[in-house]
Structures are given as structure tokens and as C-alpha cells.
């Protein structure tokens, strides 16, 4: 009996001590709280929505903030050069019809993907550029992940930098939006995970050593440090799909274009950030 009492006393004593320790330890800040201390991130938050800029490290943000230091501008330069370069049988360049890009392309990038009455399809900016090249310039289309295409996409989207994302999801675009939404919530791959399982359920938590973002598409094409070059949003989709051990689709397929529309709507009102820099 005596032994029992001693044991109880020891147990109670230990738990009191433990409780005191827990109370005394200062609350450690979460990774996101630390990121939010940087005053630069405030332009990249709208309500609950945060762009990848917020989740990036301070060093990565510094690279993005300086247009000279940002290596994506090497690709923007290619786009700018090609804008006024005559190509194809029609003897035209982009500038022949559109004039100066900073005027004519202002705000255009923020509205893509867009339903096109001409093709009766949903078109990403890349589809549109190639359609114009083939039909108006009579030139060869560019490959999706080529430097020319990435450069032109980045150059056009750059003209909308800072403007809120504003895609149309009603009218003829509605079925495409719905298909994108379905894709986003559809579990796939050997890990049986949907996009939403990470980017809706667990943003701001650690995914191995990385801080998981909300998966916003407003900074693409982006210079990814991992790729050491600029890459398209669809390339990122392929990466995501592979990570859940699902067979990825090709860049520019309907599945990914629909998904792009859904994501752009998800990022509505966030500022366009192209060309961003990410991990």
C-alpha cells in the first residue's frame, strides 16, 4: 500500500513538472508565420489567397524582385526579339498587327486560358500564339517547351504584371471549367491523390523540406531553380502528376488546359506575377 502511494506521488509530481515545462517553452513560429514577417509579401496576398511568392524563401524573393537579377528575363528578351521578327510565308511579325506589345498586350495574359470562337476550343496562351503563327503568319508552330514559346508567353504575360487574374468561366467556357474542376478533385496515381489533397487541404505545411504552397498559377512561365530554366505551367503539372505516381499528360492537352482555367479562376484577383522565380 505504501508503495502505491509513493508511486502515485511520483507520477503526479512528474506530470506537474511536465506541464510547467510546456507552459514555459515559448511558442515556436510556424514556417508560414516566419514568411509573413517579410513586408514584401503583402502585395501577394488577397484575402485567403496567397501566391507562391509568399511561400518562397527570402533569397528567392530577392531574385524575383530585381528584373535584372531574375534569370527569366533572358527568356523575356527572346520573346521581345521575336515579337517584331518577321517569320513565315505571310511576311508578318506579331508587331505587324499588334503594334507595340506593352500597349496591345496589356492585360491580355491575365485573361487566358480563353474560349475561342474560331476553334471552338479552350485555348491557353501558347495555343493562341501557335494558332496566330500558323493561320495569320503562315509560320511553323513553336514547340510548347521551346525557348521561343516560353519567351513569347513570358513576354506577353509580363505586360499584365501586377494586374489581377481575370478569366472567364461562364458561357462557352463553363464546360471546360467544370472539367478542370473535376480533374483537380479527381484522385489519381499510385498514391491515389488529387491536386486538392495537398493544395487545398495542407498548404503552409511542410512537404518533406519544402513549404507547400496553395498551387497558384499566376507566376507562370516561371524560372524554377530546380529546372535551372524557365518552364511552363503544364510542365509543372507533369511534375505534380509524376510525384503522385500518375502517368502525366502531354503539355497542351485538353486536360491540362482545362485544369489551367480552373487554377486561374482559383487565383482570381491575385496579381499576375510572370515571370516569377520559384524553388
Amino acid at each position: 500500500m505504501k508503495r502505491t502511494i509513493i508511486r502515485v506521488t511520483v507520477a503526479v509530481g512528474a506530470s506537474v513538472l511536465l506541464a510547467a515545462c510546456v507552459a514555459a517553452a515559448p511558442k515556436e513560429k510556424t514556417a508560414l508565420e516566419k514568411r509573413l514577417e517579410d513586408p514584401r509579401v503583402k502585395n501577394y496576398i488577397v484575402g485567403e489567397k496567397m501566391t507562391g511568392y509568399v511561400f518562397a524563401t527570402a533569397a528567392t524573393r530577392t531574385v524575383q524582385d530585381d528584373d535584372f537579377e531574375n534569370p527569366a528575363f533572358l527568356w523575356v528578351d527572346i520573346g521581345e526579339e521575336n515579337w517584331s521578327k518577321v517569320d513565315g510565308a505571310a511576311g508578318k511579325s506579331c508587331a505587324s498587327c499588334h503594334g507595340d506589345a506593352p500597349d496591345s498586350m496589356k492585360g491580355v495574359g491575365a485573361t487566358y486560358p480563353k474560349y475561342s470562337g474560331e476553334t471552338k476550343k479552350l485555348m491557353a496562351l501558347q495555343h493562341r500564339i501557335n494558332w496566330e503563327r500558323e493561320n495569320r503568319m503562315k509560320a511553323k508552330p513553336w514547340k510548347w517547351e521551346s525557348d521561343e514559346m516560353l519567351g513569347m508567353t513570358a513576354y506577353v504575360k509580363l505586360q499584365s504584371r501586377g494586374m489581377p487574374v481575370n478569366v472567364k468561366i461562364d458561357g462557352p467556357a463553363k464546360p471546360f471549367y467544370e472539367a478542370g474542376k473535376k480533374f483537380y478533385n479527381q484522385r489519381r496515381g499510385m498514391l491515389d491523390m488529387a491536386c486538392a489533397n495537398c493544395h487545398v487541404d495542407y498548404p503552409a505545411t511542410m512537404i518533406r523540406s519544402n513549404l507547400l504552397s496553395q498551387g497558384m498559377p499566376n507566376g507562370f512561365p516561371t524560372y524554377r531553380l530546380k529546372w535551372q530554366k524557365v518552364g511552363s505551367l503544364h510542365r509543372r503539372f507533369r511534375g505534380c502528376n509524376k510525384q503522385v505516381r500518375a502517368a502525366p499528360y502531354k503539355q497542351g492537352t485538353d486536360e491540362y488546359t482545362n485544369l489551367e482555367l480552373f487554377l486561374m479562376d482559383r487565383a482570381r484577383d491575385l496579381p499576375m506575377e510572370t515571370p516569377s522565380v520559384r524553388m
Binding site: F68, E69, F73, L74, Q228
Partner: peptide, 9 residues
């Protein structure tokens, strides 16, 4: 002076 060159290294 700042310089940046494109190279895959």
C-alpha cells in the same frame, strides 16, 4: 556592374 548570361552549365 551586373552581368547575366544564359548557359546551361
Amino acid at each position: 556592374i551586373k552581368t547575366l548570361i544564359s548557359h546551361k552549365m
